[in-house]
């Protein structure tokens, strides 16, 4: 495993409901990092009465653990403690930092808090994404009760479907479909005991997951531009028009990814497509997933002046389709 290319500490958020396997995943990742490299690893725990990683057997040599006191209950007003924890860990020149969040915490404010940290102490951390660990057996139940569980999936950059051996094939397919509806843009890895090579996580993690342009207080100027192109469910674009749009702009993008409803009638239904690609080679494939609306994330270089042009062209495309819309 190669060391990080820069002096920045790679930071991963680990989300998931109580008992999903977050702690096991972190334990496995830390062990792997300690076995295969001389990495300095940090762990920030923000727990909700769960059994932490504290008692586990690790080599303490290169591990720095900070447990923050968030008042036990979920409370966003304690994010000052979270920020203080990150400030403290910044002194240790870590290679990797894992943040184990509370089982019912909402990851959205956490990402916002990271921006505050960057403002205070500079670019010490390189945020790599939010790993959402899911207990395959209990996910549907917790989803029904907790809005925060839905948001953990929505804001994730990689989903780990854990305890996969405890559900059957049909349940697994059903679960995958639901996860893809909540967050169509991330990859899903399956596991039994959260035993996933870190390299696989690094390669599968998606850096541009939905929901994208969340309002933030201080957008760092070095981030790539993210544009969200949307069309309501009653607007169905024609295949030709959409392909023309793609041909025109795809080469200007870092990446584009999303779901789109196109006008191709199959058994009386319109067809949903999944588009995913890097620059000149976006792949488009039919999908059975039906979304509430067309949604595509476009990532551009921060200095690319075409952001507004693309949005304008998309607006024209949508309104021309609106004028010629048909009912399926």
């Amino acid at each position: 495993m190669n060391p990080p290319p820069s002096t920045q500490c790679r930071l991963y958020l680990i989300n998931g409901f109580l008992g999903s396997g977050k702690t096991t995943l972190i334990k496995n990742l830390i062990q792997e990092l300690q076995e295969f490299g001389d990495f300095k690893v940090g762990l920030l725990e923000n727990e909700f009465g769960e059994v932490g990683i504290d008692g586990m057997q690790f080599s303490q040599k290169n591990l720095k653990l900070v447990e923050i006191d968030n008042g036990s209950i979920f409370c966003s007003c304690r994010s000052d403690q979270f920020i203080e924890g990150l400030k403290e860990l910044a002194n240790y020149k870590l290679d990797f930092l894992f943040i184990e969040s509370s089982g019912i915490s909402d990851p959205a404010p956490m990402e916002r808090d990271l921006e505050v940290v960057e403002k205070i102490i500079g670019e010490v951390y390189k945020y790599k994404g939010n790993l959402c660990v899911i207990d395959s057996l209990n996910f549907m139940d917790t989803l029904e009760v907790l809005e925060s569980v839905r948001r953990q999936v929505e804001y994730s950059n990689l989903i780990i479907l854990n305890k996969i051996d405890q559900i059957n094939f049909d349940e697994r397919e059903g679960l995958r479909k639901i996860l893809q509806v909540i967050n169509p843009l991330v990859n899903i890895l399956e596991s039994k005991y959260c035993k996933i090579p870190f390299q696989l996580i690094q390669s599968e993690i998606c850096s541009d997951a939905l929901p994208v342009p969340t309002e933030s207080y201080n957008s760092p100027s070095n981030k790539p531009q993210k544009i969200l192109l949307q069309a309501p469910s009653n607007i169905i674009l024609t295949k030709d028009a959409f392909f023309e749009f793609l041909n025109h702009f795809a080469s200007q993008t870092f990446r584009l990814k999303g779901y789109i409803q196109l006008s191709e009638i199959v058994e009386g239904k319109t067809v949903w497509y999944y588009v995913d690609g890097v620059q000149n080679a976006p792949e488009i494939a039919k999908t059975e997933i039906i979304r509430e609306k067309t949604e595509i994330v476009v990532i551009l270089d921060q200095h690319n002046p075409l952001g507004e042009v693309i949005q304008e062209a998309w607006g024209d495309l949508v309104s021309s389709s609106q004028n010629s819309k048909f009912s399926s």
Binding site: I73, S76, I104, D106
Partner: peptide, 11 residues
């Protein structure tokens, strides 16, 4: 009741 923000409207 801060935890209210974490439960679904249905519940």
């Amino acid at each position: 009741d801060p935890v209210v923000s974490q439960v679904s409207p249905k519940i």
